[in-house]
Amino acid sequence: MFLINCPFCGERDQSEFSSGGEAHIVRPKQPTELSDDEWAEYLFMRKNIKGIQFERWNHAHGCRKWFNVVRDTSNDKILSVYKMGEKPPVNYK
C-alpha cells in the first residue's frame, strides 16, 4: 500500500493503478526466428528482484496511461517515475 506519482495526474493511491511487471523487456523483433529458449526467456523468466526494480504501471482507474517506476521491492519505496520511451535513470543501476 503506497502512493504513486502518476506523471500525468499526480499522486494517487496505488489501488488506482495496475502493475505491469518488470519493465524494459524488449519485444522480439523477429518472432519467427526465436528459439524455444528465447521465447521462455521473453514470456516467463523474470528478475523478480528483492531491492531496486524497474517496472511498468498503468493508471487503470485514472488517465489509463502507462509509465515506468523505479521501486525498492524490499520496502515499497518509490525512487523515481519516468514516462514510456524515456531512458531509465542511471543512478539506480
Binding site: M1, Q14, S15, S18, S19, G21, I49, Q53, T73
Partner: peptide, 13 residues
Amino acid sequence: DSYVSYTQRGSHN
C-alpha cells in the same frame, strides 16, 4: 497484491 514486493505486508484494499 498485483505487484512484486518482499515486504510481508499487503494492501488494505
